[in-house]
Simulated assay, not measured.
Amino acid sequence: MVIELGLAGFAAIVLAGGQGSRLGGVDKASIEVDGRPLLEHALDAVLDASEVVVVGHQVPTDRPVTFVREEPRFGGPAAGLLTGRDMLLRSFPTIAVLAVDMPRLAPGTFRRLQEAAVGHEGAVLADADGRRQLAFVVETARLDAVRPDHEGQHGLSIRALLEPLDLVEVAPLGDEARDIDTWSDLRDIAGEADGDAGPY
C-alpha cells in the first residue's frame, strides 16, 4: 500500500523528549527562538494536522495536544515516535513526525512532503549531503508493520526503524533542515532572525 492523494487528515507527532545533553540538560521545547518556545514553532509547522501528540515534558500551551513520555524512558527517538503513535486517539492514513528543535519547519514543509510521498510509503526531508532529518511523513500501516516489540524499541534509531520503508527524499527550502543541538546553533539561528526575517 502506498500513499494516495485526497486522504482526509493526518496525525502529527512532535519529538520533544530528548535529554538535551549538549545544551546542559535544558528542555529544548521551552527554549525560545524569535521570542517563542520551540514547541510553539513545532506546533505551527503541523497546523494542518487533525491530531497532535507531543512526546516530552508537558509544558503550557493553548493548543489541543496530547502530552506523553516515551516508553521506555529515554529510549531514544524511535521509542518516542512509537509511544506517540500509540497515544493517537483516532486512526489516520499518514503520520507527520518532527523534532521539536527545527524552528524553520512550516506547514508548507509537510504539504510538500505529503505531495512527494504519493506513490511511496512516505517522504523525508534530506539536506544537500543526503542526511535525513527528523521531519518526515509515513504511512501509518507500514510503520505499524515494521515496528519492533517493546523491548526492541529501546535505543533503536529512527533510521533503523524506517530503513525497510520506501521513503522519497525531499530537499529543504531555505533553513528548513536547520536544528538546534548546541548553544552555538541557537545563537546562529537567533542572529539570522535579527538580521533577516526570512521566508516565514
Score class of each variant (00 low, 15 high):
A141K: 08
P107Y: 11
A116H: 09
P164F: 06
D34W: 07
Q133R: 15
V26Y: 09
A171M: 04
A128C: 05
A49W: 00
I3R: 04
I95R: 06
V65I: 04
L38W: 05
V68A: 15
G174Y: 01
E169K: 14
D34C: 07
P77D: 07
S30P: 06
G80Q: 09
T140D: 14
L81R: 03
E71F: 13
R69T: 13
I95A: 05
L98Y: 03
R73H: 10
H150T: 08
P148M: 00
E121N: 01
A78R: 07
G24R: 08
V59C: 03
D181G: 15
A79Y: 10
T83L: 01
S21N: 12
I13E: 08
A11T: 08
H120D: 02
A197K: 08
A141N: 07
D185Q: 10
H120K: 06
D48H: 12
R90K: 13
E121R: 09
E40N: 01
D196E: 06
A45D: 06
L5H: 13
H41E: 09
A126K: 03
A99G: 15
A16D: 00
I3V: 14
V59P: 03
R159S: 11
P93K: 03
A11E: 06
A16Y: 05
T66W: 00
P107K: 11
A29W: 09
P103N: 07
D101H: 08
L165G: 11
T182I: 05
G152E: 04
V33M: 06
D48T: 06
G152H: 01
V170S: 10
F110H: 04
L105V: 02
G20N: 01
D185M: 12
A8L: 05
H41Q: 09
L156Q: 12
L15F: 12
L167K: 01
P77C: 01
A160V: 10
G35K: 10
Q114V: 06
V33Y: 02
P60K: 00
V100G: 02
A177K: 10
M102A: 15
G155E: 06
V97E: 03
R187Y: 12
Q19R: 15
L167Q: 07
D62R: 13
V53S: 02
L143A: 05
